[in-house]
Design a protein around this nucleic acid. Structure first.
Lengths: 257, 257
DNA sequence: TTTAAACGTGCATAAACGTTCATAAACAGG
DNA sequence: CCTGTTTATGAACGTTTATGCACGTTTAAA
């Protein structure tokens, strides 16, 4: 009846669980098309996952189980679906054997869930939430930058962290932008965070930065680097063309997701 | 009955094990065709491998076991309630302004949730899961030890982590014991983990170690330190008196929770 | 209120499954 | 060289499981 080459049931449900962890919803129809099975089958999967307490069934798809909303994790929940798309585009740049640094931020937390686990990747990060997510992915190796952790930024920043970062040269870095502007470049809300991002970018071979629409055309108090310092700037597909033009960059450096 | 050209049973099963390690799954039908045996035979192989804990049987084939051991998040769920009681007792030792190091382990993860948030505490740890939990507690400051993170231990261990630990002198350390014995002292399943625990204990002013009943009277391959090196050994109230006596320590060094 | 999409249920079907038995090679002991 | 035993396998049989489809119901949005 089924797959010569398709996914086994358990694999399919495991993949759905991963999606739920990375985004804030799944849609039955999309899953059906993606896994090449009928929607009935997907609905059955979602019903079973819901019965096991792994998701919450809703009309049209399912939601992840609500985690007790805490300060930081709350921020992480906002606009997850859009950030997941950005993260997916960034994850697409991963190549076998790379060491990839994930900066703090919810887009990169999504990336931690989405990075392929069969490419022998090493993930480095200074953000505990991201580290915890990576540690739960059997196919990924983890390197952690330590130091004094800033609760607002959600990552280890400051002099000790910088010193540890100096001894690391990632193949690729995913920078989380607090603000992006064609003229002001990338900027951050915290001085130490900005300095960390700057050093991180300089230490890395391939530099990616991503931002949702709201952050484009804005500037924060602490400049990081001009846009020209990055190999790829990942933005949403539907960014209005005026703002897109204001960045003064074009494909392939500009990536729409 | 088997063909001169075909593989022996052991060879076939070894090959299946190799496939499971290399890929994410095996499919019974494919294996049957490839080895030129009936699917019944493959199913028998998979059943035997599954019985030996070498794979996970699913409809249509088999999946590799998530990790050599249980997944970390699974291990964290076992005996939560009992570990929470131990953690509560340890948390009771916290005093205003202290810097407390939380070693890896589920008991200390519970402690991260239970430490009072009105004592101006700083928590240090090398375990991402614990760091993430602490970061979600507004009243706690966090210091993270970095380095290569061992997925089995669930924490950063190894030379770089040791070097960072050298520059830290916690007021108190909660050590997670893999095994405790009156004669053998505290021991661990991983060499680097044992060395980290040893240095951590030596660097700390007040040293606590906790263990659930199952770990008392057992020894692991890598010794950490004798029980005399600890200020308090926290055990469960209902530990049987023979084992309790075998530890050769008494109150107030011995704490029952 | 209307309407189309999403839903659950029951059913049919074929694949996958476990069990039992038969066969024949491999083995052990005399 | 016999003879009985063990072992790996495949075949036969009935059972379970995963899936898609049909059909009537519910839902949410227009």
């Amino acid at each position: 009846m089924q797959h010569a080459t398709g996914l086994l049931l358990d694999e399919r449900q495991a993949e759905i669980r991963r999606r739920l962890a990375a985004s804030d919803r799944v849609i039955a129809g999309d899953l059906a098309q993606e896994f090449q099975v009928s929607e009935d089958t997907i609905r059955r999967d979602l019903r079973e996952l819901a019965a096991a307490g792994q998701c919450i069934r809703v009309y049209g798809g399912a939601l992840p189980v609500p985690t007790p909303d805490l300060p930081l994790s709350e921020r992480y929940r906002a606009n997850i679906e859009r950030k997941r798309r950005l993260a997916m585009a960034m994850a697409g740049f991963a190549e076998r054997g790379m060491t990839i640094f994930l900066d703090a931020g919810s887009t990169n937390l999504a990336a931690a869930h989405l990075l392929p686990d069969n490419l022998d990747l090493t993930v480095a990060t200074h953000a505990p939430h991201i580290a915890a997510a990576v540690l739960d992915r059997p196919g990924l190796r983890l390197f952690m930058i330590g130091g004094k952790v800033d609760a607002k930024v959600g990552a280890a920043i400051g002099s000790q962290s910088l010193k540890e970062l100096e001894r690391l040269n990632p193949d690729m870095a995913f920078i989380g932008a607090c603000a992006i502007d064609g003229a002001a470049g990338v900027s951050a809300f915290d001085a130490d965070d900005a300095e960390f991002k700057r050093l991180l970018t300089q230490q890395s071979r391939i530099r990616l930065v991503a931002a949702i629409n709201e952050k484009i055309g804005t500037a924060a108090p602490y400049p990081v680097l001009p846009l020209s310092a990055f190999d790829h700037v990942v933005i949403e597909k539907d960014l209005d063309s005026a703002k897109k033009a204001s960045l003064s960059i074009s494909e392939p450096a500009l990536v729409s997701a």
